[in-house]
């Protein structure tokens, strides 16, 4: 019985770890696709990767989403990914991007973010 319990616990730990890494991979893929679209000047693709609120934020004051979003600084390579619940953060060498899980896909809800001591990030794109 004890052997079965150990095997069960080990199996559960493996499943949880696999689920965790699978979600990390999904977030990494979504964030790098967004960063690549910005770097390639593909504003339409970058805007399509945003949450509806983030897109509305970019389009405020009558700005064009595609033309505005390609002005974000180059993100560079991924340094760290953190996923908690349906929220995630991807640290690039040159940017910090926040994502939200909407249904079965991850969308960017904030990008072009700068850390502020003791306060939330200040982001060029936010929604």
């Amino acid at each position: 019985m004890r052997g079965r319990a150990v095997v069960g616990a080990a199996f559960a730990a493996v499943v949880l770890a696999a689920c965790g890494s699978a979600r990390d991979a999904e977030v990494r893929t979504a964030a790098t696709a967004f960063a690549a679209a910005v770097a390639d000047g593909d504003g339409a693709a970058a805007c399509a990767a945003l949450t509806p609120e983030a897109r509305r934020g970019v389009q405020s004051f009558g700005r064009d989403c595609a033309a505005t979003i390609v002005q974000l600084p180059p993100a560079g390579i991924v340094e760290a990914v953190q996923v908690w619940g349906d929220s995630a953060q991807v640290r690039f060498a040159g940017d910090v991007v926040f994502l939200a899980e909407l249904g079965d896909e991850w969308r960017v809800r904030a990008a072009g973010c700068r850390a502020r001591p003791g306060a939330p990030y200040e982001c060029a794109v936010e929604g």
């Binding site: 953190q82 908690w84 619940g85 953060q89 939200a100």
Partner: peptide, 15 residues
């Protein structure tokens, strides 16, 4: 910690 980090990320803060 997991719930708190989810909340922090929603507020654009580090976990």
């Amino acid at each position: 910690r997991a719930a708190y980090n989810d909340q922090l990320l929603r507020q654009l803060e580090d976990p």
